[in-house]
Nucleic acid binder design. Structure first.
Length: 351
DNA sequence: GCACCCTGTCATTAT
DNA sequence: AGATAATGACAGGGT
């Protein structure tokens, strides 16, 4: 049931993005000797500004800055905003709920809990709690003793009444433990479906009630360990009661931990989505910058070619004739010297 | 009836 | 060593 594969949400889809093709440029060396040895071949620089090094990838020309996979990314984000109501929204919702619940749970004042709806506890429990400390479930579900762990049946005699605790004083017994629970009549707010937890007191509260635990589950869960131990030691509790109390404390702590964990998970997802958006923006800016650089580079090459031609045409041999560009070329040495070299020879490009 | 979501719980590991 | 926190996995209930 809970393992049904779910369609990828926005952040999940984003994780499947391919690597940014637009930026993995083939290694462009800053100094290409061929450029300076055979300048006339490169002079007609027609395709500068077109980002030729990008190949046929999705990288746009300068005027079209929308690569294919960015649309994918944007689609994914759009899915995130359409299908899921937005994780930020979910997060704030979760925060509201968790915060409210946590505050409620932490409330110091201990009053009588809302009336318990024992009938509501037809829900089955899962895992150990069914077999271990679910006294009321056992009661209301009508489980056969054969289905229970042997020690469970031993720990939870069906007849609670007289076995139960030697309560210190009547004043210390919370009212709800002394009064029979009234039938629960949920009164949902308009336009809002109350969570299950609000419909009735929790299962652990009902368990505590059934086991006549003489203090509230809120204290069991929220007291610091020393205070908790002190509280427990003040009462003469049976072993089943102690087991239940420890279970209640463990479950209560874990419930809060799970809420916090889920909240953090949502926060992380939101943060990652924001980072993804930011990185997408940075990538777009880098692509624009590179187009500008390519354009500038093309212009410089064009000017250099022009200059090369002008210099070459001014050269004359001893007879005053111009050199043929088919037979000679100009070469630049590392120290800045310029030589006229026949095509059959080449200067050592080392230096 | 099914898919999805939310929540509580358990088991396990980390702190 | 025991308590607690964190988290994945699962189940049950609601929509």
């Amino acid at each position: 049931m809970g393992t049904t594969p779910k369609p990828p949400q926005a952040w999940e889809a984003c994780l499947h993005l391919s690597t940014p093709q637009g930026l993995d440029v083939p290694n462009e060396t800053p100094y290409d000797p061929a450029v300076y040895t055979l300048m006339q071949q490169m002079v007609p620089t027609v395709n500068y500004g077109h980002c030729p090094a990008l190949g046929d990838g999705p990288v746009p020309s300068c005027s079209q800055p929308a690569p294919v996979y960015d649309r994918h990314y944007l689609d994914a984000m759009a899915i995130g905003t359409n299908k899921t109501p937005s994780l930020s929204g979910l997060l704030s919702e979760a925060q509201r709920e968790a915060g409210g619940r946590a505050e409620g749970g932490r409330a110091e004042g201990y009053g009588p809990p809302p009336p318990c709806n024992v009938q509501e506890d037809l829900e089955s429990d899962s895992g150990l709690s069914l077999n271990y400390s679910d006294a009321d479930s056992m009661e209301t579900e009508g489980l056969e003793p054969s289905r229970l762990r042997p020690d469970y049946a031993e720990m939870y005699p069906v007849d609670y009444g007289p076995h139960y605790p030697l309560l210190p004083t009547l004043q210390e017994v919370p009212p709800f433990a002394m009064q029979p629970p009234e039938p629960f009549k949920p009164q949902p707010e308009k336009g809002r479906v109350p969570p299950r937890a609000e419909l009735a007191c929790s299962r652990d509260e009902r368990r505590a009630l059934a086991m006549k635990i003489p203090f509230p589950t809120e204290k069991i869960v929220n007291l610091p360990v020393d205070d908790f131990n002190e509280l427990v030691s003040k009462y003469q509790l049976t072993e089943p009661q102690l087991v239940l109390i420890r279970d209640i404390r463990r479950r209560g702590k874990n419930k809060v931990a799970a809420q916090n964990c889920r909240k953090r998970k949502l926060e992380n997802i939101v943060q990652l989505e924001q980072e993804l958006e930011q990185l997408g923006r940075e990538r777009q800016q880098l692509l624009r910058d590179r187009c500008e650089v390519d354009k500038t580079l093309g212009l410089m090459k064009q000017k250099l070619g022009q200059l090369y031609r002008e210099v070459f045409l001014m050269l004359r041999d001893n007879a005053g004739n111009p050199y043929s560009p088919d037979e000679f070329s100009l070469q630049l040495t590392a120290d800045g010297g310029i030589f006229l070299v026949p095509h059959s020879k080449k200067l050592d490009s080392g230096d």
